[in-house]
Simulated scan of single mutants.
Amino acid sequence: MKMLDSLDLSHNQLSGKIPTSLAEIHTLSVLDLSNNNLSGKIPTSTQLQSFNVSAYDGNAGLCGDPLPKCAEDSLRPSTTNPLENKNDKEGNNFSFMEEVGISIGFGFIIGFWGVVCSFILKKSWRIAFFNLVDAAGDWFYIRIAVFVSKWRRT
């Protein structure tokens, strides 16, 4: 049975739990257990949980992935905070907003000191920058003066 590729046990009036040994068949690519009287939790295995819901249809007593959770799973209180559990799984101890704040801080520091250091180290860049700022200031001053003089005439 370890080399089994396809298993169709639908419409056979089978009852009871799905055997855990079925989860050990790693070559199984097609499974159909629909329209039986199976009950209990689907064995925890990536193999059995990867099949479509249609493989388990018609079994009112079945629960667990990919079907809805079992009643005993939802009644059991969680011992950890779900957000903490999520962060632990990802290996991340910061919330999203903390990550954004840290990124903005590093970006500002690197950007600011990148500009300041380039002006300190390269005198020609510093002179060109301040000439540009001076020319932009003159341009704005002239535009505003022209606008105000036109506005006063009307």
Rank of each mutant, 00 (worst) to 15 (best):
S118M: 11
G114D: 05
Q47T: 14
S6V: 11
S10C: 04
P82M: 10
F129W: 12
S78M: 07
S10T: 05
L14H: 02
V115I: 15
N35F: 10
N87P: 01
S6Q: 12
A60M: 09
G107H: 05
G40D: 01
L75E: 13
D5C: 10
G114V: 03
V133D: 03
G91Y: 05
K17I: 03
I18G: 01
L9P: 05
D8W: 09
K2P: 03
E90M: 11
G91D: 08
F112L: 15
A136C: 12
N12I: 07
F106C: 12
T27P: 04
D73G: 02
N131F: 07
S54E: 09
I144Q: 11
V115S: 04
S74H: 02
I109F: 14
L121A: 13
G58W: 01
A71L: 13
D73K: 05
F108A: 11
I102N: 09
Y141M: 11
D88T: 12
L38V: 00
D138S: 08
W151P: 02
E98Q: 15
L38C: 07
D88V: 07
N93L: 10
I120R: 08
N52D: 14
I42T: 01
R153K: 14
L67S: 03
E84S: 08
N85D: 14
I42M: 03
S124G: 06
A55K: 00
F147S: 13
K86V: 07
N37Y: 08
S45V: 00
G61M: 02
K86L: 14
I127G: 03
I104C: 04
G101M: 09
V116K: 07
D5K: 15
S50V: 05
L83D: 14
G137W: 09
K150Y: 12
R76G: 00
R76Q: 11
V115Y: 03
Y56K: 01
D134F: 12
G137L: 13
F140T: 10
G114N: 04
V100Y: 02
Q47G: 02
F147R: 12
Y56C: 01
G114P: 03
S34I: 01
T20D: 10
L7P: 03
L67F: 06
R153Y: 10
N52I: 02
Q13Y: 10
Q49K: 08
G137A: 15
L48A: 03
K89E: 04
L33P: 00
N87S: 13
G61Y: 00
K122I: 11
N35Y: 13
G114S: 10
K86G: 02
Y56T: 01
M97W: 12
G61H: 01
P68W: 03
E24W: 02
R76I: 03
I127M: 11
P43N: 03
T154K: 15
F140P: 00
D88N: 15
A71T: 14
K2A: 08
G40F: 00
W151V: 15
S103G: 14
F129T: 14
F140N: 07
V148P: 09
A128I: 04
N87M: 15
N81Y: 06
E24V: 02
S95V: 04
G64M: 09
